[in-house]
Design a protein around this nucleic acid. Structure first.
Lengths: 184, 184
DNA sequence: TTGGCCATGTAACTTGTTACATGATTAA
DNA sequence: TTAATCATGTAACAAGTTACATGGCCAA
């Protein structure tokens, strides 16, 4: 129980892919899951300690520094169990849409800037996903995981493309509002 | 300072649209901003009390129950200021993608179920957005706000459509994985 | 021998949610 | 007169982030 079981999923899942140290785990979560998940430093170590106490992971190698954590049999079973639990969705929090909603107060020009910036960021993300997809496709380790990883990358691509299309639509719409205000 | 300024934006913004009671405010945030924002009950009242103390909102009508809050001059200035601050984005947390990433452990069949469910939900959301857009277009109060509100609804539509397209792509891809496993 | 990175943790703080407590008003 | 809804708040808890503290190892 303890820690949000979501954190346990991320930690157990990452270790199931490949045993590693706590430090490497933190980097893997940041770099590999980073596009759709995050765990802060202060969550990972306590979670790891808890998992070890429950016998879901065990240290391999020296007990001291540099100890590599691996998922036990029980740990694999627990992971499967956790993965099948209903997905917990957090409350939505989109700062961009919150600002646009109050666009009358913010002003059309500032709205344009925000949307333009969002579009640029989405384009950047899109390039990152393309690169990531190519990289995953090229690796031979994790070959059995790769098809699943591609699904998550594809989700990012679709989302970024949608953001770009929306931004373009927005910019046209904002022009219309602008015109109306001037001519009214 | 105090409360996260994000909560202040939501509260001040909603009251700027139209003065209302704390109770109505809670409902407005849930029902109107609900697709991209949320504030819990326990945040709204303290935030409101803080804003009143800073002179950014004031009570109109009886001091007791049923008092309507309205944004003051200073409050409008503060809102404009807050809206122009850089957008704070929370860390990403997508439970569906987290599960798919560990799809090898979860199993292809369970992945299919998750994706199918996600698709159904996206279709549902899409219908909600269509209805919402029609409703906003039909209202004559808030006519100057409507164009901005449509932008946020459009964002939801694009996002839902992207989710549906991605889900279809996923389902095909999952079939392929399935086939490979059986033939390999 | 110093700076950077690997490595492990803790403690304080912020944020946010849930449940509880209270009471007025209104419709059945 | 009873249940629902409007209305206002608080307190306890859960979750999550940041900054701090520590030390080994290795390369310049």
């Amino acid at each position: 129980m303890a820690r949000s079981s979501q954190t346990e999923v991320a930690v157990l899942g990452a270790l199931a892919t490949e045993p590693m140290t706590g430090y490497a785990l933190r980097e893997a979560i940041r770099d590999v899951l980073g596009h759709f998940w995050s765990e802060s430093f202060g969550q990972i170590y306590p979670a790891l300690a808890g998992l070890e106490q429950q016998g879901l992971v065990e240290r391999q190698g020296g007990d001291g520094r540099g100890a590599v954590y691996a998922v036990t049999e029980t740990g694999h079973a627990r992971l499967r169990e956790l993965l099948m639990q209903p997905i917990q969705t957090g409350p939505p929090r989109n700062g961009l849409l919150l600002r646009l909603f109050f666009g009358r107060t913010l002003g059309v020009a500032a709205c344009r800037d925000l949307v333009t910036q969002a579009k640029t960021e989405a384009q950047q993300r899109l390039r990152e996903y393309e690169a990531l997809a190519a990289q995953v496709a090229g690796e031979e380790r994790h070959a059995t995981d790769a098809p699943f990883w591609q699904l998550t990358i594809s989700a990012g691509r679709h989302s970024a493309q949608a953001a770009i299309a929306w931004a373009d639509e927005c910019l046209s719409a904002l022009d219309t509002i602008d015109t109306q205000e001037h001519t009214a």
